[in-house]
Amino acid sequence: MKKLTTTLLLILSFFVVFGQTLEARYQPAVSGFINAVKSKNVNKLADRVAYPLEREYPLPAIKNKQEFIKRYKEVFDDQLIKMIVNSKPAKDWSQVGWRGIMLFQGDLWLDDDGTLRSVNHQSAVERKNRAVLIAREKSGLHESIKVFKDPVLVFETAKFRIRIDDLGNHNYRYASWPLKSKMSDQPDLILKKGEWVPEGSGGNHRFDFKSGNFLYSCWVMEMGGKDTPPAILTIYKANKEILSQDATTIKN
Rank of each mutant, 00 (worst) to 15 (best):
G19K: 15
R25V: 14
P28D: 04
V30Q: 10
S31H: 02
S31W: 09
F33M: 03
I34N: 07
I34R: 14
A36P: 13
S39L: 12
V42T: 13
V42M: 09
K44C: 00
L45D: 03
L45W: 10
D47K: 11
V49S: 07
P52L: 04
P52V: 00
L59A: 07
P60R: 04
A61F: 11
A61Y: 08
K63V: 03
K63Q: 13
N64Q: 01
K65V: 04
K65H: 06
Q66N: 02
F68C: 01
K73H: 12
E74W: 14
F76P: 02
D77Y: 06
L80R: 01
K82R: 14
M83E: 11
I84W: 09
V85R: 06
P89I: 11
K91A: 01
D92V: 05
D92W: 12
W93K: 13
Q95E: 13
M102Q: 10
L103H: 08
F104H: 12
Q105L: 07
G106N: 05
D107W: 15
L108V: 02
W109V: 04
G114Q: 10
G114V: 10
R117E: 05
S118R: 14
S118K: 13
S118N: 10
N120K: 02
N120A: 05
S123E: 09
V125H: 03
V125I: 14
R127A: 08
R127G: 06
N129V: 00
V132N: 08
L133R: 15
L133F: 08
I134L: 08
E137V: 01
E137N: 07
G140P: 03
S144F: 08
I145E: 08
I145G: 03
I145C: 07
